[in-house]
């Protein structure tokens, strides 16, 4: 009997055979390996949080909440506060979001609502995506030597004629909030445009046809039907773009001016959390490192909050669309 079966296995023209014990061992090991690295992802994030928060602990216990609302940064007096940096981070990101958001959504409309022949659409889409590929330090260099000289006449004009408006109350003396926010807007534009495009493309074609069938013009359909329908995804895109802007470092460290002050004026120099870290870390003493780690914790908390909010919004609207 046993021999008979043997011959069946050998004679059959097939690759299939039961797993040998070696195969099973390999399977176990390989599964174990992949599981280990999946677990390691979770542990890695936990370790990152632990390491940053742990190193910040001495400063947190010593400075407490006064760190968050104090406005002086004096290494010699050992007096530290990051309110100007928190303000600068939020203000620059908000300005960038207004600019980048407007352009990003407009481009998403332009690329999805049949304005262009398909080939031109693809080219333009690729150009916008390439904007995201340029390293931020190159944008910083471009900002210093091209953008700032370019916008200075405009800034001077606005300050001279509209100086009574708080936003234009100082003149642009070089680096400042406005050039930094402009570059930031360029950097988040591709993110906003890409996610908004997905939101527009997710709208069923019938919705648009129904609008046209009612006799709307193209823009009535876009403004009253398509934008409201896609608004969830677009809102998520804006939140994620905001998250990106909050954490961006190099362009801001090079363009924002690194001045420890709070001002509404878009032409005055300012500072952000990420730029503060970039500039002070290399020369910091032990205790100052801990103080900077505290700033890193705050940055971490702000970006985590914004990113999770954005992800939840996008997930909710996507699943809502399927139902």
């Amino acid at each position: 009997m046993a021999n008979d079966q043997q011959s069946v296995w050998e004679g059959a023209d097939t690759l299939s055979k039961p797993a040998t014990s070696g195969d099973k061992l390999f399977d176990r090991l390989f599964r174990g390996l992949t599981y280990t690295f999946t677990l390691a992802t979770v542990l890695l994030l936990a370790y990152i949080l632990y390491e940053i928060c742990g190193k910040a602990l001495p400063a947190i216990s010593k400075l407490g909440f006064s760190y968050l609302y104090s406005t002086t940064w004096d290494v010699n007096a050992q007096h530290f506060g990051i309110l100007p940096e928190i303000w600068g981070t939020l203000y620059s990101s908000l300005l960038a979001l207004i600019l980048g958001g407007f352009f990003g959504i407009t481009i998403a409309v332009f690329l999805t609502q049949d304005f262009l022949p398909h080939k031109v659409q693809v080219v333009l889409k690729n150009i916008i995506e390439l904007l995201a590929a340029i390293p931020s330090v190159v944008y910083g260099l471009w900002g210093i030597y091209v953008l700032i000289p370019l916008i200075r006449p405009l800034a001077d004009y606005l300050h001279a004629h509209f100086g009574w408006i708080p936003f234009f109350s100082t003149s642009l003396s070089g680096p400042g909030m406005f050039p930094a926010a402009l570059v930031l807007a360029i950097m988040i534009l591709p993110t906003v445009a890409a996610i908004s495009q997905d939101a527009f493309l997710a709208i069923p074609h019938k919705t648009k046809e129904a609008a046209y069938g009612m006799g709307t013009t193209r823009w009535e359909a876009i403004l009253r039907v398509l934008l409201p329908t896609a608004s969830g995804g677009i809102f998520g895109a804006l939140v994620l773009g905001f998250g990106r802007a909050l954490g961006e470092t190099m362009a801001l460290a090079m363009l924002v001016g690194n001045a420890n002050q709070i001002s509404l004026s878009v032409f005055s120099p300012a500072d952000t959390l990420a730029a503060l870290l970039a500039l002070n870390f290399p020369e910091a003493s032990d205790y100052e490192i801990s103080v900077l780690m505290y700033a890193a914790v705050i940055l971490l908390l702000i970006t985590l909050l914004v990113n999770v909010a954005g992800a939840v919004i996008i997930a909710k609207t996507n699943s809502g669309g399927k139902k």
Binding site: I48, E51, I52, L246, T249, F281, I289, L299, L300
Partner: peptide, 14 residues
């Protein structure tokens, strides 16, 4: 979504 500078902060500490 983490700011890239935090990767630097972590690598500095670790």
């Amino acid at each position: 979504g983490l700011p890239s500078i935090l990767a630097g902060v972590f690598a500095y500490a670790a």
